[in-house]
Structure formats: C-alpha cells, structure tokens
C-alpha cells in the first residue's frame, strides 16, 4: 500500500484524498494483519485479512447470490413497508376516528423490539423468506407512518387559506397541497428506514433463515469458517454503506427540488 512515486497531479491527488479519508480503515487492516502475524493466533479465532480477501475473490458466487437475496428482500420490504406506512398515515389524516385507532396502534406495534417479533412471526408465517420480508416491512413501516403523518400537517405558510379562497375541492386540496407537502418528510423517512431494512433482513436471516447474508454468516461461524464469516461482514458493511449513501443522495436530490 505504498504511494506510487511521482506521476503527479490527478492520480496522486486522488490517492491522497483516499488516504486522508479512509486511513482509519487502512490502519485497522494493517494492525489486524500485523497482530495476527506477530501473535500467531489460530486461524479459527482470527484469520488474516488476506485470507478473508482470498475467500471473497475465490467464491464470489456464494457471496453475490446471498447478498442479492438479502438486498432484494430488504428493498421489497422497504417499499412495501413505506407504502403501508404512507397509506395508514393518509387514512389517519383523513378521519379523526381512524386517527384515534391507528396512531396508538402504530406506536405500540413499532415499539416492540424486532428481535422479540421474529420468533413469533416465524411461527405464524413459517421459517422462510416470507417471514424475513414481513420483518423488513414492519421495520420500514414505522418511520414512514410517523414522518408522513407529520408531513401531511406541515403545509407551506398561507397555503391552506389560499386553497380555501380559490375554492379547491377536498380531493384537489389533498392531491395538490397535502400530499406534495409531505414529500420532504417522506424522504427523511426513506433515508432513516433504508439502512435498518438491510440490517433487519440480515438479522431475520441470521435467526431463522435458510439463505441470505445473515444465514451465510451464521452457518460459516458455526462451521468455524471464520474467513467466510468475516467476508460476509465485509459484504454486509459495503451494502449498508451503499444503501445509506443512496438514500442520502435521493433525499438531497428531492429536497433540492422541493424546498
């Protein structure tokens, strides 16, 4: 990992920024490698970073297949959960009666820890992908419900009077004012919900799944394939970071247009 000698300007500068930003990651890798080499810890306890990297390169199919499945479940669950949260928030907005029923129910439901929910839902829905999906939906539901509910009530100043004076119907008011007003809050919900969607998918797979990244990690760890387990962690980390970055980018892009 030595910087290449003097082909100046762009490549060098890029390397410099990379080093200044990610030197922490590099330092951890170097210390990890050094510690394993010097202390001679058993491979099963802690493999060298090089071994983990070798496993990632040697068996890309296993990682890709499982990561793909986890990512797909997380994305699908995120979409369904946010859709459900939005629809219920709109229903609660449209009638005080429904609001009185749905709001406390949503709050109670979402404060149950997800770890406690997984075995219950698995018993009901079976030990397969459906349960993983259901968990992600439940996790994604809450931020969508809370933020959409708040967003439906934060209208631009004066706009509510304006729509009344201009004789807008209740439906026009909803589609042209209330719903668009909720978009910024909805994007915050999306940014907040995306990383936990991946995390909860992996957790559900870890606890009761038969495939996916979470399952891959569990089976590798219990089979003493520590380098496979750590490789899974690397892939999971990369996915989480990518999801977060994407959600942040999406939020900013929308807010730029909206505010």
């Amino acid at each position: 990992m030595r910087p290449e000698p003097a082909t100046p300007n762009r490549p060098l500068r890029m390397l410099k920024t990379a080093l200044s930003r990610y030197w922490g990651v590099i330092a951890v890798l170097v210390i990890w490698q050094a510690w394993v080499s010097i202390s001679g810890v058993n491979q099963i306890v802690l493999p060298q970073p090089v071994d983990v990297f070798r496993d990632l390169v040697a068996e890309p199919g296993i990682y890709l297949r499982n990561a793909g499945q986890t990512l797909l479940l997380a994305a699908l669950g995120l979409i369904l959960g946010m859709l459900l949260g939005t629809v219920i928030a709109v229903l609660a907005w449209s009638s005080t009666l429904l609001s009185g029923i749905l709001t406390p129910l949503g709050l109670v439901f979402s404060s149950v820890p997800v770890v406690a929910l997984i075995p219950v839902i698995a018993r009901i829905m079976g030990y397969d992908l459906k349960t993983v999906l259901a968990i992600v939906v439940i996790i994604s539901f809450f931020p969508a419900f809370v933020f959409t509910s708040a967003g439906l009530k934060t209208l631009p100043p004066g706009s509510s009077d304006l729509f009344r004076v201009l004789g807008a119907s209740r439906w026009t008011r909803f589609t042209r004012l209330v719903l668009p007003s909720a978009v910024p809050s909805w994007m915050i919900a999306f940014r907040l919900a995306a990383p936990p969607a991946v995390l909860s998918a992996m957790l559900a797979e870890f606890l009761m799944g038969t495939s996916g990244l979470g399952y891959l990690f569990r089976s590798a760890a219990s089979g003493f394939q520590t380098e496979r387990a750590l490789g899974t962690s690397v892939v999971a980390t990369v996915i989480s970071v990518l999801c977060f970055t994407f959600a942040l980018w999406a939020e900013r892009a929308v807010l730029r247009k909206w505010n």
């Binding site: 100043p157 004066g158 706009s159 009077d161 304006l162 201009l166 247009k257 909206w258």
Partner: peptide
C-alpha cells in the same frame, strides 16, 4: 387573493 405570506408552493 394576495396575502403578506406569498403562499407560493415551493415545489
């Protein structure tokens, strides 16, 4: 109507 709040929709 035109009020002190311009009430233009930001989006």
């Amino acid at each position: 109507v035109a009020f002190q709040d311009h009430a233009l929709l930001p989006w």
